[in-house]
Design a protein around this nucleic acid. Sequence first.
DNA 1: GCAAGGTC
Length: 601
Amino acid sequence: MDAHTLIITEKPDAAKRIAFALDANGTPIIKYEKGGSYYIAKRKFLITIVPALGHLYTVTIHKKNKKSYPVFNYRWSPKYLTERKAGKIRDRIELISKLSKKIDRFIDACDSDIEGSIIGYTILKYACGNKEKLAHRMKYSTLTKEDILKAYNELSPSLDFAIIKAGITRHEIDWLYGINLSRALTAIAKKYSGRYTNLSTGRVQGPTLNFIKLREIERKKFIPKNYWQIKAKIKIEKSIFLAQYRKKFLKKKSDEIDIIDNCRGINCVIQKFEKKKYRMMPPTPFYLGSLQMEAYKLFKITPEQTLKILQGLYLATLISYPRTSSQKLPASIGYRKIIQRLQKNSEYNKLASEILTKKILKPNEGTKIDPAHPAIYPTGNNPNKVLKTNERKILDLIVKRFLAVFCDYAIREKTKITINIDNYLFFIIGNQSLDWGWIKFYRPYFKLENKIIPTVKENQKVSFIKLISEEKTTNPPVRFNPSSLLRKMEKEKIGTKTTRSGIIKTLEKRKYIIGEKISITELGNEVIEILKDYCSSLVSVELTRNMEVRMKDIIQGKEKKETIIRDTIELIKKTIRSLSDNEEIIGTRLKRVIQKGMFRR
DNA sequence: GCAAGGTC
């Protein structure tokens, strides 16, 4: 009997692409079973390629009493034991388990990041019967045939156990904090309010909610200030212009009155005329976060909805894998081939044709990278069913952004007239495009207008009409919306590309936050206050920072998983004790906001 | 059910 290899991937698409790349004739056999489809490729020997569906195993506890806390005796089990609607996962595990029999070589080809490492490890250990120590690791960053073959020929001899250990520690700590604190809050709320209210918190939920609270505090503290803006109405040749005084923010008594009194328009002359060309670089390719933000800005589609739409477009093979943090488009995706496919679509024919005249295609990449995926790009395939409005909008956005990325920079010219009126300087600023470059390709998603002002000569006299003084008020910092909150989470490195939008949704579901311009509810505010009083680490981004450091230490062998878990449990024990000691106060606080209903602040 | 992290 020939040797037989089993390759495990993180998701179905990866299994398919690997099967087609590895089969000597490019025609692997596709098998359909209850647990999903898998592939058999033939090389010198047989290779079975079977996909997971992300994590198939997770941290769980088996106990009759679902409300008791604290709980520390967890273990890793199949996900279907804890999640409803996970029947698919049970079937998948059974399929992989069956396929793992009579296998000589195991290869973990899950995404080459920490989570991918855990997904592969748990499957090899629990579904395949302790095969994790025998398995090889296959790492690729795109699913092109070239990359796949290279990864297959350069297998790591073993899994990266240090990374796996660090990742598993992260899962367990999150579980310990999340389950215990959520249960404690829910239980105390129920006991004192008499009403069941599902309360929760965690390493990411806590700080995210706190961002909104802090913004709310800034807004409350904010004292609006009055200021004045002065413009001069003047006539150059036959046109009227408003020239802005060189200082944009004027204080009433000192500045504004001074000008009104002294600037009479007796001497009104052009002091300077300047022109300056500058470049506007094309945009960078979309990663998940930037696409979610752009979709919200342009279409008011929430990040959570956008992710759902992207998943649909991806499954319909219209776009590449959407859960990426990369701004890179490697040449191996085949730029020209994709643009040629887009060219066949009448909507993009003109734009695509123009780009194809370029001899060299070079995308304007950003700096962000992703260990497992390139940036988001269209495949150029035609939809085989009618797309819904929002799907169409998002796809069009992706196509136009992809095209724009290959375009030339735009050339703009800034024109500035400096006018001296009785020794006070005023400006008129103009702006125009000399070459639209990429902007033409990204329309209507980027709008830029020309404001043309006349060419004048220095020392030329102009006629003064009058001064206009406007009183204005400074605005408080704006509330977050789903997009700016996502950006904030990204900036603070809280959550992951895939989970951020979901976390925001969870805070909404818990009635901690409300509104499109997000504000914190009384309930959300009380939860934050309680956490601050009794478990301050859960409202700060520092817990994540700290965890990152400790994970690194595990990877470098400087710290032991057991120590970190022990410390975490000690801290949670202490926290739960102080929650119990102060149960009545906390209960009364929660009761107040729950019984009142969840009004906006 | 509760976390956060994958995936459909």
